[in-house]
Amino acid sequence: MAEAETQGKQVKPILPFLHISDNPDEKPYLAGSKCKSCGATYLGARMACSKCFSTEPMEDVKLSDKGELHVFSIVHQSAPGIPTPYVAAIVDLPEGVSVRCNIEGVEPDPKNLKFGMPVEMYTEIVHTDRDGNDIMAFKFRPAK
């Protein structure tokens, strides 16, 4: 907490695998790890490979910001305080990783969403915490 005060306001990711660089020119990206033994790729870090059990340290990979819509649901009722309706989706990335995410930029109606449609990631600040740090989230929208 003292650190945040001395360093001023920081931008923090909503989930640990959203990588935010210290260099403001570098776009935030989803960080993955790839098993050197079998090639299985994960969102974020893993202690060992869940597929082949290899404990060799994994290769860090920068995941693509473009993917395809696998499936979705339109959530109309959620836990208290969560705005609805919204599109809750699973997006497949070309590295063989899937991501749970919101799809923005379309009215939340099944007719606006097509299986396999190309989507792209973007980030935005969704919250400011007690210490004044901005919380950044990633979202997907139909690719231009």
Partner: peptide, 17 residues
Amino acid sequence: GGGISPEGIVGSGLMPA
């Protein structure tokens, strides 16, 4: 991170979705 739940912002992990 930062004491905010990703639920409803980064998709949904709740049973209905």
